[in-house]
Every structure is written in C-alpha cells, then in structure tokens.
Simulated assay, not measured.
Amino acid sequence: MKAAFIQNGAVEVGTLDDPIPGKGHALVRTHRCGLCASEAHFLHAGQNVIDLSQKFGGPYSALDPLVPFVPGHEYVGEVVDYGPGSKRTVKPGRRVTSLPIMRQSGSHSVIGFNNACPGGFGEYMLLDEDMLSEIPDGLDDNLAAMTEPLAVGLEHARRGLPTKEDCALVIGCGAIGLGVIAGLKLAGIAPIVATDYHADRRALALAMGADLALDPREISPYEPLADLGGRQVSLVYECVGLPGLLQQMIQSVAFGARIVVGGYCMEPEELFVFAAQNKRLTVQFAGGEEPQDMDLALRSIADGKIDVAPWIGATIGLSGVADALANMSSEGAPVRTIVDPRLL
C-alpha cells in the first residue's frame, strides 16, 4: 500500500506491505484522516514519548521509531474484509470510524503509533471490530473524520462534572479546546470563556459557543469579568500542555475552583501543593475519549448540533504530509488539515 510514514524522525512517502487482518480485525480502506499535533510531536520528541511510556506505563512503549510506522488516528474508511473467525460487526462496503485502539489478540495498541497497527496516512488500516462506529449515509468524509478529535474534547468537558452554576474557562482553542467548548454548550453550561493568543482561534471559539473570547496577554481570565457582570470562572479546562501552566492556574483561580488538565505535557511540572490546599482546589486529569464520547461526537456532527466544518482546511495527498506537519502550528493554520491517502 502507499503511505506516508515516519522513520527515524522523518516523514517519508513510499510503499509498505498491506496489513493482513487476523481474528477480530477489520481491514479498512482509508478515505480521510485528520492531521493531529501528536504526529508532529512524534517527529520532534518521539523517543521521549516512548521513554516516558516505558518508565511510567503507556501505550507507546512498544513503538520502534527506527522501523516505519504509519501515523493517523482521526480517520474514516470503508470496510473491505475481516480476518478469519471475526464477528464481522459492520458489513463490507460500509464506512466506519473507531476509537484508535486495538485490543484484539490480547494487545493494547494505539492505532497510528504502533509498528503493527498502521494509521490513516496509509491506504489500508486494521481496526478492532469491537470499536467500530458506522458512519451515517450522507455524512461527508471530512466531517466524519472530525469525530475522534471532537470526542476527546467531549470527554474532557464531562470530566469536569460541569453544572449550571459554573462559569467555565477553556485555555487553548485548538481542536481539543474547541471540542470542550462544544461539549459544554451541548450540556447547557454558560457562560463559557475561552482564551487563545491567536485571533482566528478566538473567533472559532465564539463560533463553537463561547460567550467571551480573550487574549490572555490583554486581560486576565481569572479576575472578575465585567462583560459577565463581574463573575469569576469556577471551572478551568487546560488544553495546551505547557510546563508551568498548571501552577499558574493554581495561583490564579478563585477559592474552591476546579481544574481539568487535558493538555499533554511531556516535561516535569513543579507544583506548590501548599497554594492549591489553601484554596481547596480540585485538579482532575483528563485522558482520551471513551466509546460514549465517540458515539456522542458522531451523532452531534451527523445531526448538525455541532458544526465542525470551520475546523477543516485543505485536503492533501500523501506528498503534502511533511509540509503540513511542519506548518500546522503556524498562525493562521487550520485546526485540521485532511489527508486523503488515495492521493499522492
């Protein structure tokens, strides 16, 4: 199969062996796949992620960066066949997405970050048939590919146990932060405050349902906000993942606030527990999405309750993956560039 793969810290485009499905595996022909910052992170610091997984436990510990691996975990594809002895949960010819997890044959692998589980930057994938979600007829492939990143934001949103009394703050308006805003809006939470350095991301935050979008260099989102009648935020979602940010939030939030940490920080974080104790803070660490979040994300996109179309930029072929990964953090870059692995 044709694929864009990572090997030894570089993106290459070439031909790899087609994956062969075993029991419980669905062989899927990829239609679309979103580019995520995690793929760019593996280009620059992949060995660090692997080392941390080996030290602290994690699904990336078995990845060999010297051997080609095909990234891509925000995908839509068409079921082609199944391995022998499979339940065949979705008919061949139907489109699917899934949690990017493989648990068949006793394994626990993240699709796209395992040498044996190629992701959506290749023409074919192996998906766990127990994780498949069938795409409704008529739903555009590009929109359907946003199911997984939206689901992560929805998971983070519910982890905070938001109530109608909360004033919520979302820090960072990439795909995950925007998904948190959408999840809060869907749950009827208001007001929602968003912060981001980039004006285009603040505009997207408002489009997703935020009531106020601030540049934190100009105004502190933790102080009583005049535009909200002097209210202060009580529930904060961190969707950036930079060292020092958690301690900054602890120092800045009001007494009794709750903090949900969703950003993946791969560096040590120094905390003054004393400061958090004095304010009686609650800190919740959020992880990846679960089946209920994938189901809600797909239904909300399909029925139009959450509009992810503004997230989507260009659709590229495999030859454009390297440049897109290199430029995805630049100002004005779309929230998601879409890869069609059938195109070179």
Rank of each mutant, 00 (worst) to 15 (best):
M1A: 14
I6K: 06
P19M: 02
I20W: 10
H25L: 00
L27W: 06
V28A: 03
V28T: 05
V28G: 01
L35P: 01
S38G: 08
L43R: 05
F56W: 08
G57K: 15
G57R: 09
A62N: 11
L63N: 06
D64L: 08
D64C: 07
P65I: 10
L66E: 14
V70A: 03
P71W: 00
H73V: 01
H73G: 00
E74C: 03
Y75D: 03
G83S: 09
P84T: 11
S86Q: 09
K87D: 11
T89L: 06
T97P: 02
L99F: 02
Q104Y: 08
G106L: 14
S107M: 13
H108C: 11
I111N: 00
F113C: 06
N115E: 09
A116T: 08
C117N: 12
G120M: 02
G120Q: 02
G120L: 01
E123N: 06
Y124R: 08
D128N: 12
P136M: 09
D140K: 06
A157T: 02
A157R: 01
R158N: 04
R158G: 00
G160E: 06
L161Y: 09
T163K: 00
E165V: 11
G172P: 06
C173Q: 11
A175Q: 07
G177D: 02
L178I: 02
I181M: 10
A187Q: 15
V193Y: 03
V193N: 05
A194W: 05
T195V: 13
T195L: 06
T195N: 09
D196C: 08
Y197P: 00
A199C: 08
A199Y: 04
A199M: 12
D200T: 10
R201K: 15
R201C: 01
R202E: 07
L206K: 11
A207M: 05
A207I: 04
A210T: 07
L212C: 10
D215C: 10
E218T: 05
E223V: 15
R231E: 12
Q232K: 15
Y237R: 10
E238Q: 03
G241T: 03
G244Y: 03
L245Y: 00
M249F: 11
V253R: 04
F255M: 13
G256F: 09
I259K: 12
I259S: 03
Y264S: 13
P268I: 01
A275Q: 09
A275R: 14
Q277S: 15
L281R: 13
L281V: 07
T282H: 10
V283Y: 08
Q284C: 13
Q284R: 12
A286H: 06
E289T: 07
E290C: 11
M294A: 07
D303W: 07
G304Q: 10
I306H: 01
I306R: 01
V308P: 00
V308A: 07
A309P: 03
G317K: 11
D323A: 14
A324R: 00
A324P: 02
L325V: 00
A326E: 13
N327H: 14
A333P: 05
L344C: 12
